[in-house]
C-alpha cells in the first residue's frame, strides 16, 4: 500500500524532529524556589505573565515528574547537596536554568556562605541575568531553552556541551559513539 492511499491530514518528517518538538512543547519545570527570585518565578506563573502560554504552568513538586529545573535564588553551602540530589532525581532528558545573578555567579554575595554559581554543582543550560530577573527575562530564558531543545541534538550527553547554543553549529561533543543515534542522512 502506497502513501497515496492515506488521508490528507498527514505529515511526514523525521522522528527526531518530532521528539524534539514534543520535548520543547511540554516542558515541566520543577519548583526549586530558593529566595527572592522564586517570588518572580511564581509571578511569571500567575495571571499577569501567564506562563501557561508556553505550556509550562504546571510546576511539578516532585523532581521525578519534571524535566526542567529553574534554580531561582542563591544556593548556600548547606543547600548545595540538596540541590544536587534533586537534580539527580530528575529523569533524563533534563535541563537547568540558572535564574538570577546569585544562581549564575553568586551575585553580590561573594562570601563564605554562598556557592559561587550553580554551574559548580549541576550543568546549566541557560543563565537568566538580573537581580531579580523580571518575569519577562525568565520567559526569554525559557524561550531560549526551547529553541535550544528544538534545534539541538536529542541524545547529547549532559555536561559536555557549551552552555548556550543558539544555532546548531556543527560541533561534535566527545561522547562515546555508542550512545549517539546517527542522524538519517
Amino acid at each position: 500500500m502506497g502513501l497515496e492511499d492515506l488521508p490528507h491530514n498527514f505529515l511526514t518528517g523525521q522522528l527526531e524532529d518530532l521528539v524534539k518538538w514534543a520535548r520543547k512543547s511540554s516542558m515541566w519545570p520543577a519548583t526549586f524556589g530558593l529566595a527572592c527570585c522564586a517570588i518572580e518565578m511564581m509571578s511569571s506563573g500567575a495571571a499577569d505573565f501567564d506562563l501557561a502560554r508556553f505550556g509550562m504552568e504546571v510546576f511539578r513538586n516532585s523532581p521525578r515528574q519534571a524535566d526542567l529545573m529553574i534554580v531561582a535564588g542563591r544556593v548556600s553551602q548547606k543547600m548545595a547537596p540538596v540541590l544536587r540530589q534533586v537534580y539527580d532525581q530528575m529523569m533524563e532528558p533534563k535541563w537547568v536554568i540558572a535564574m538570577g545573578v546569585c544562581a549564575s555567579t553568586g551575585g553580590m554575595f561573594n562570601n563564605y556562605a554562598v556557592v559561587q554559581g550553580v554551574d559548580q554543582i549541576v550543568p546549566v543550560d541557560v543563565y537568566a541575568p538580573g537581580c531579580p530577573p523580571t518575569p519577562e527575562t525568565l520567559m526569554h530564558a525559557i524561550l531560549t531553552l526551547h529553541e535550544k531543545v528544538r534545534t539541538g541534538e536529542i541524545t547529547r550527553r549532559r555536561g559536555v556541551e557549551p552552555a548556550v547554543v543558539f544555532d546548531a553549529a556543527p560541533w561534535v561533543p566527545e561522547v562515546p559513539s555508542a550512545v549517539r543515534v546517527s542522524r538519517p542522512s
Binding site: N110, N111, Y112, Q116, P162, A163, A169
Partner: peptide, 17 residues
C-alpha cells in the same frame, strides 16, 4: 574569619556560539 570570597573571574563561553 575571612569573608571567604573568591576572586571574580571573567571567562569566555566554552565552545563555539
Amino acid at each position: 574569619y575571612g569573608i571567604g570570597g573568591v576572586p571574580v573571574q571573567f571567562k569566555s563561553t566554552p565552545g563555539p556560539r
